[in-house]
């Protein structure tokens, strides 16, 4: 749990900045201690609960279908299932999403690309593995070019089994993720 997910910290501190002082102390020092203090207060409870309430009710996911679970992902946002009821919403760019769904097999060639996508998502972020292919490789478990254990590369919070899982299972997976966020038991500890 870095301090960066609530209050932005300068990524690289310039040498020039280190010379500046405020009340006789280096500016960077003051900045970091203040943010640490604020973060401690936030971590204590009530505020964190409010933040997590907001986060759990507004899980936007990355529209990045791969494989046949992607088809069910499309249906998941449509009538009959309607993910918008829970505030779950697809977005096209990784900069604006919270949840990445791995919805199919990852080939060795595709792994760098999807890792890049994962790193482009701003904190706090979660990842779900949906379908047998994403969990264990599924029917391709002994293939030479399929990653069959995605949890080696991503801190997966929720696994949704099925080949492909029904859209209802998608909803169930998201509900489980919401529970985890509320109880602060997700992998990255938000």
């Amino acid at each position: 749990m870095g301090i960066s997910d609530v209050i932005p910290v300068p990524v690289a501190v310039d040498e020039e900045l280190e010379k500046w002082t405020i009340w006789g102390r280096p500016l960077t020092d003051v900045w970091f201690t203040t943010t640490e203090k604020i973060h401690e207060i936030i971590d204590m409870g009530p505020i964190k609960n409010v933040l997590n309430w907001g986060r759990k009710n507004s899980l936007w996911f990355l529209m990045q279908p791969m494989g046949c679970c992607g088809v069910e992902m499309l249906v998941f946002g449509c009538p009959h299932y309607d993910c918008d009821r829970f505030g779950i919403f697809p977005r096209a760019t990784p900069r604006q999403v919270d949840v990445m769904i791995i919805s199919g097999y990852i080939t060795r060639k595709y792994l760098p690309a999807i890792k890049n996508l994962w790193e482009e998502i701003p904190e706090p972020k979660w990842v779900m593995a949906i379908g047998e292919c994403a969990i264990s490789g599924g029917p391709f478990y002994d293939s030479y070019n399929i990653i069959n254990d995605t949890s080696r590369f991503f801190p997966i919070d929720v696994y949704v089994p099925g080949c492909p899982p029904r859209p209802e299972k998608f909803i169930e997976g998201f509900r489980e993720l919401q529970k985890k966020i509320k109880q602060r038991e997700d992998k990255r500890g938000y």
Partner: peptide, 16 residues
């Protein structure tokens, strides 16, 4: 309150 949740989430997200 959906928009409240959205706003809280967006405002506390990392700023890249």
């Amino acid at each position: 309150l959906q928009l409240g949740a959205d706003a809280i989430k967006l405002f506390t997200k990392e700023d890249i």
